[in-house]
Design a protein around this nucleic acid. Sequence first.
DNA 1: GTAGAATCTGACACCGGTGTCAGATTCAAC
DNA 2: GTTGAATCTGACACCGGTGTCAGATTCTAC
Lengths: 118, 118
Amino acid sequence: MKIGELSRRTGVSVRSLRYYEQKHMLASERTAGGHREYPEAAVDRVILIQQLFAAGLCGEKIASLLPCMRDHDGGPAETATPWLVEQLKQERQRIDRSIQDLRYTREVLDEVIAAAAR
Amino acid sequence: MKIGELSRRTGVSVRSLRYYEQKHMLASERTAGGHREYPEAAVDRVILIQQLFAAGLCGEKIASLLPCMRDHDGGPAETATPWLVEQLKQERQRIDRSIQDLRYTREVLDEVIAAAAR
DNA sequence: GTAGAATCTGACACCGGTGTCAGATTCAAC
DNA sequence: GTTGAATCTGACACCGGTGTCAGATTCTAC
């Protein structure tokens, strides 16, 4: 499919899709004239990328992480290098801390909301 | 205490402390010569601000939220306006979604880490 | 008083993902 | 063939919290 359709189907802007490609998170074939052509699987991949962004991973880490993930169509994929594993463990810690922060802040908000309802 | 000590005790840079004041998140008295002077309670407040930042709230929201929080020293504090309550509820939703995202991403990372350990 | 450390203000830069615009080219449908 | 929609590349801007630098002023300890 073309970039416009991928944008519509994922809700991600055309601009961002091009950016993902530039940062090696998303690949595309090209038509004779140079237009991008995506396989069906690109939809899931873009959604995945968004989710990783939402979790605070930077583009570079996502790019190195993606080839190590099992494509849901069963591609065996690469294995993470020791360096990458170390990075991912650190990300994992960061995520744990983030969840704690978010839980705490949610409690704080709930208190204020409850106080106002009284 | 002076700004340098507050910085040391909270781990937040002097620059950031001044920024918090500029954005009305943190108040200070001034000495005759214009230097900032903070009460003991500022330490907790700064830590709280950091936690709210970490949860993704922007400075403006934090500034409007803070006066509605009970100071742990028992100050009765203001009550949130209906507008603010609406904002906070939206933040709460965002936080819920973030937690979900983070949990999912953590699982993804764990899979990749586990695959590499094999 | 005086020196050195600390603080003051104001300005500019950065990051990284995204929006947006311009001008050129290609695609698709008639 | 022709034309309107879609796509291409490249560039510049934004946000918001923070780093950093410059030059002036104030504080603190001797």
